[in-house]
Amino acid sequence: MALDRRVGFFEGLKYKGGGPMLAWILHRISGLGMIVFISLHVVASFFTQEMGSDWAISINIVYESVIFQLFIVFSVLYHGINGIRIIILDLWPRMLRYQKEMTWLQWLVVIPIYGLTIYIMIQRMITGE
């Protein structure tokens, strides 16, 4: 009997698709990250109104933590810029020939903006502004 065609999650991740596949995976992860952030925000607001502030504070601690904020800033930035790349490729299929160059260009935009954001965040943390 032939083995089932199903491809496991981790088996799929092991496929060495390179930069473009990484972009596709990061687009999903960053999308999920934003959903988690907005959901936590909504739940925290709900708890503040309905159950007092203690519940809300405990949730706020999660999404206001430095690590979560670094993650969410990356998610918003990456998801947005990668989305623009995909829209350009969808609207002008001839550009698909230059998809590798566009992926590099995308990183050239993401990395400086993200670096600058991290710099400002850390600076404000240190100075306590």
């Binding site: 698709g17 596949m21 596709w24 995909i86 698909l96 998809q99």
Partner: peptide, 8 residues
């Protein structure tokens, strides 16, 4: 979803 594995 323009993953490009196919082209590669």
């Amino acid at each position: 979803h323009t993953i490009f594995n196919c082209t590669d």
